[in-house]
């Protein structure tokens, strides 16, 4: 059960963001409803979440793998199952998902060198964000451009935030998208 009341219907100041959520996800996720008592936070966090979940400078499918690896690394549970479903819907194979969940990605044929380097970044941010080596960044820059690297770092740290907020508030969203995204 959520720590705070989940606001089922929008109030003054949240009408637009609830409508955006319905338009984007097909419904209003429980996290958005839990944020609903605070107009500013509901608006800005939901809008950022919508911005993060979609095609961008990197593919949405790879973003989902980043999100799953981040949630696992940070021991966060909020929406983990939902993101597994999104990844599958976007074409990520079971074998690739399976190799993500432990350390097999380090040698798995299902992962490119570029993807492996991103997972090393997630792992290091989980250990100590102050200690990401220049060598790792140099390797990342050989595969990803600056805009992609900012997006990658933003997706990692955003879902570190979303996981913390969802878990702390005791929110469950077993399905994030009720509309077809495949």
């Amino acid at each position: 059960m959520s720590v705070v009341n989940q606001v089922e219907s929008p109030t003054t100041g949240t009408e637009e963001v609830y409508a955006s959520a319905v338009n984007y996800f097909g419904h209003v996720p429980n996290l958005v409803k839990a944020l609903g008592s605070n107009t500013n936070m509901c608006n800005s966090i939901t809008n950022f979440m919508i911005q993060s979940l979609g095609e961008g400078r990197i593919s949405w499918a790879f973003k989902e793998l980043i999100i799953l690896k981040t949630l696992k690394t940070m021991n966060s549970h909020y929406s983990y199952g939902a993101h597994e479903k999104i990844a599958r819907d976007l074409g990520v194979t079971e074998a690739k998902l399976g190799d993500m969940a432990n350390s097999l990605w380090e040698t798995s044929d299902h992962y490119s060198e570029a993807e492996r380097l991103v997972f090393h970044l997630i792992k290091q941010i989980g250990i100590d964000a102050n200690d990401v080596s220049a060598s790792l960044w140099e390797q990342l820059k050989q595969h990803w451009n600056y805009g992609q690297l900012i997006e990658i770092n933003a997706v990692i740290t955003t879902f570190l935030m979303i996981g913390r907020v969802g878990d702390a508030l005791g929110v469950s969203d077993p399905v994030l998208f009720t509309k077809d995204i495949s």
């Binding site: 705070v4 839990a34 605070n38 935030m161 907020v165 508030l169």
Partner: peptide
């Protein structure tokens, strides 16, 4: 909500 969001 604002406390938790600020920390996050």
């Amino acid at each position: 909500v604002e406390i938790v969001a600020t920390i996050g």
